[in-house]
Design a protein around this nucleic acid. Structure first.
Lengths: 333, 333
DNA sequence: GACGTACGTGAAAACCTTTTCGGCCCGCTG
DNA sequence: CAGCGGGCCGAAAAGGTTTTCACGTACGTC
């Protein structure tokens, strides 16, 4: 395969480049018969227009940058996928850049992306805490997952507080009253927010946390196991555990299983993240909260498109999470 | 921030665009003093060259496409990361496209990428079986993880056979003699290859598989659990289990734990993939085989660069895997 | 003082496409 | 028959950069 240009096509069709261009782009001022000839010539040479040249003149590159710090992580990928399919793949392609949490690498990538004249930028954080704004750029930017600290930017985030509330609400509806919350690193706003949502819902019901307080620790199975042992020790009549992540939930389930405490009949367990390799394969399969990240990605793409068309928005938009019920929770009795 | 062009810079510096270009690109035929003036002007306007225009004339877009079918999966990401850092991020940016296993979507993406004049293409499969070649393209292509069926293409794959051999070799060195192999879907060449490597190594040692044959099934924890129960039933004196994936290994560990069979003192367990969320957090942490995919990605980028520079290669290159020892294996006694 | 050389600079072409505008031809109207 | 309008096409400019080549100046050499 070689590389035909529009001029080659025009020559083969016996017309000028201008006409060839119009023919291929569906412009009306070209006779049907001529158009047909051009189209055939283009096919014959397997012509595909040089997007660089197009971008040069339309001032639109048809590309966007996705700047992440969480490539190995599991948050940016679903967002990326959502974004990818919200932009028609023929219209817009996405440049993926992973800054690996390094600010200077991020600057570097940013520079490269601007140099490539991306039409917009999606910035995905590694954790849901606010991050510093990229400042004023010549292209629109959407922050996803981790919000920008500048209210003039547009940030799209998941509703962690609502997630905590939803989780506890589900447990209450299952008839549970002695609900504990084991979660991860307290320096994560996600941990704080989920806990707050959980406690709020309990309070509404006139309940307090089993175990007396939130069990903060680490985002790991090991912590889930350790905390569960301590919890059972201190509060053996607990009838539900809300884990701050699916990893933690796996640890919780593991210990309950070891102690021959049946899930869900005696203790219900709910996780967070819907990380399917963990949630689907656990014993029993884990009820959990899905962050709906593909949706977030799709919306990010839409907002970015809107901004590119000239109608930017700003502020923080919060998106609801979704309860995924599996078998680790069930009504009492 | 606005968008300065080279002309603006030139005007501000009081030189022609030609001179400005040469000054910024380190061409020798510019007086030092002039260069300095241009550079300052460029900084002042925060000029960044339009890569589209550069690409148009140099016939190099400085981009490559990464075409995958496994974005949600865990194979393409490490490869992508390896590739990303092998290309200097300032030299080359990567377009990420996920075909989601759909051939027509793949064609679509391919068309778009060629239209964007990518300088090269990396194709990553979702599973390690051979895939049909994309055929003759105007840019070099490297197939990674899943090899192309056309020997004229260059394919980079992991050594699954060697991995199976390495796993069993390690178990043998731990003094194990009654080694079973529980693995996934037999339609995957990965499953077949790993099994073959395992059996070969056993044969060299004059051993046969505990349980009589390879236990093919599914790539899931549940199958790992089920198979282990059957295995213990039929062959209670097994002293090592080689699991075809870390997921399966988790299932294996789970049942052994349930049956109060100590790992590694009575039965050693080794997994495959080094999927860290599974392997690191298991009880005990899992010895496993790492596919070294970042390395594969880096090599893919290097081979692609070489091909872009005019020295293409072809055939299938196989890359060694790596044993990661944790605590689920140990010498007997 | 004439000439050659080296160096620094600028004009212009090239990359490929889109779009505007002018021109041509045809048929129609008055 | 003159004039006019509409339909179709091509010439040319534009977009931002790199590169080639020619030009001008200053200097050194004979």
């Amino acid at each position: 395969m070689s590389r035909a240009t529009l001029r080659d096509v025009a020559k083969l069709a016996g017309v000028s480049v201008a006409t060839a261009s119009k023919a291929l782009n569906g412009q009306p001022q070209v006779r049907a018969e001529t158009r047909e000839r051009v189209v055939r010539a283009a096919e014959q040479l397997s012509f595909s227009p040089n997007t660089l040249a197009q971008g040069l003149i339309t001032q639109r590159s048809g590309t966007v940058g996705l700047l992440t710090s969480d490539l190995e992580g599991r948050f940016s990928i679903p967002i990326l996928m959502g974004a990818e399919d919200a932009f028609g793949s023929d219209q817009t392609s996405v440049f993926l850049c992973d800054a690996r949490g390094d600010t200077i690498r991020e600057k570097h990538h940013l520079r490269a992306l601007l140099s490539r004249r991306v039409d917009g930028l999606i910035v995905v954080g590694a954790r849901p805490d606010t991050r510093t704004s990229l400042g004023d750029l010549p292209v629109p930017v959407v922050y996803a997952y981790a919000p920008s600290d500048d209210p003039a930017d547009l940030s799209l985030i998941t509703d962690n507080t609502g997630g905590g509330r939803t989780a506890v609400d589900h447990l209450i509806r299952c008839g549970r009253r002695r609900i504990a919350h084991i979660t991860g690193d307290p320096s994560y706003s996600a941990a704080q927010d989920r806990a707050r949502g959980a406690v709020d819902r309990l309070t509404e019901e006139g309940l307090t946390l089993a175990g007396g307080e939130v069990w903060f620790g680490m985002w790991s199975e090991a912590w889930g196991r350790g905390a569960t042992r301590m919890l059972l020790d201190r509060c053996p009549d607990v009838d539900a555990i809300f884990a701050g992540s699916d990893e933690i939930a796996r640890g919780v389930l593991d210990v309950l299983h070891e102690e021959r405490i049946d899930v869900p009949s005696r203790v219900a367990v709910i996780g967070f993240d819907n990380w399917s390799v963990l949630a689907v394969n656990s014993r029993p399969p884990l009820t959990t909260i899905d962050l709906n990240l593909e949706h977030l990605g799709r919306i990010a793409a839409q907002r970015l498109s809107a901004a590119m068309e000239g109608t930017p928005t700003s502020g923080v938009e919060t998106f609801p999470v979704r309860l995924i019920t599996r078998e680790s929770t069930a009504p009492l009795r």
